[in-house]
Computed example of a mutant assay.
Amino acid sequence: MTKKILVVETNVANFAGTNHLTGLWLGESAEFVATVQAAGLAVDYVSPNGGYVPLDPRSMKPNYVDDNTLRTYLTHDYQTRALANTLKTNQVNPDDYVALYFTGGHGVMFDFPNNLELQALVKTVYGNGGYLCTVCHGIAGLLNVKLADGNYLIAGKKVTGFTTSEELLSGNSKRVPFLNEKVATSHGAQFVKERPFKSFAVQDGQLITGQNPASPQAVADQLLTNLQA
Results as ranks from 00 to 15, higher is better:
10 T>D: 03
214 A>Y: 03
160 T>G: 03
188 G>W: 00
160 T>E: 01
130 G>L: 05
8 V>E: 06
100 L>G: 02
20 H>C: 02
163 T>S: 12
143 L>K: 04
178 F>V: 08
127 G>I: 09
194 E>T: 14
208 I>L: 03
115 N>H: 09
57 P>T: 13
141 G>P: 12
61 K>I: 14
103 T>W: 04
31 E>S: 08
31 E>D: 13
95 D>F: 10
122 V>W: 03
176 V>Q: 11
118 L>Y: 02
24 L>R: 07
36 V>G: 01
109 M>S: 13
120 A>T: 12
147 L>G: 04
76 H>Y: 13
1 M>K: 02
177 P>Q: 05
176 V>T: 15
75 T>A: 05
36 V>E: 00
162 F>Y: 15
109 M>Y: 13
95 D>C: 05
52 Y>M: 13
3 K>T: 02
97 Y>N: 04
19 N>Q: 14
131 Y>L: 11
151 N>K: 14
198 K>M: 14
181 E>W: 06
28 E>P: 06
202 V>Y: 00
41 L>G: 01
55 L>F: 10
213 P>S: 08
160 T>R: 03
201 A>I: 01
188 G>Q: 00
97 Y>D: 10
209 T>E: 07
210 G>P: 08
69 T>I: 13
158 K>A: 10
52 Y>E: 14
218 A>I: 00
90 N>V: 08
3 K>Q: 12
53 V>F: 05
50 G>W: 05
136 C>D: 12
7 V>N: 01
153 L>G: 04
93 N>A: 14
80 T>P: 00
169 L>P: 09
165 S>P: 04
24 L>Y: 11
55 L>S: 10
48 P>T: 13
14 N>V: 15
67 D>A: 15
141 G>K: 07
25 W>Q: 01
56 D>E: 15
54 P>C: 11
196 P>F: 07
96 D>S: 13
161 G>E: 11
177 P>T: 00
16 A>L: 05
155 A>C: 00
96 D>C: 05
168 L>Y: 14
77 D>L: 12
50 G>T: 07
225 T>V: 04
108 V>M: 10
128 N>C: 06
10 T>H: 04
77 D>W: 11
110 F>C: 03
118 L>E: 08
124 T>S: 09
67 D>I: 12
174 K>I: 10
111 D>F: 12
224 L>P: 01
182 K>S: 07
55 L>I: 15
112 F>V: 09
208 I>H: 03
14 N>Y: 13
20 H>W: 11
59 S>Y: 07
172 N>W: 13
176 V>S: 10
218 A>M: 02
219 V>Y: 01
141 G>R: 10
132 L>V: 05
151 N>H: 07
155 A>P: 03
59 S>L: 09
72 T>P: 01
217 Q>W: 08
185 T>L: 00
60 M>E: 14
215 S>L: 08
95 D>G: 09
157 K>G: 03
128 N>M: 06
121 L>A: 06
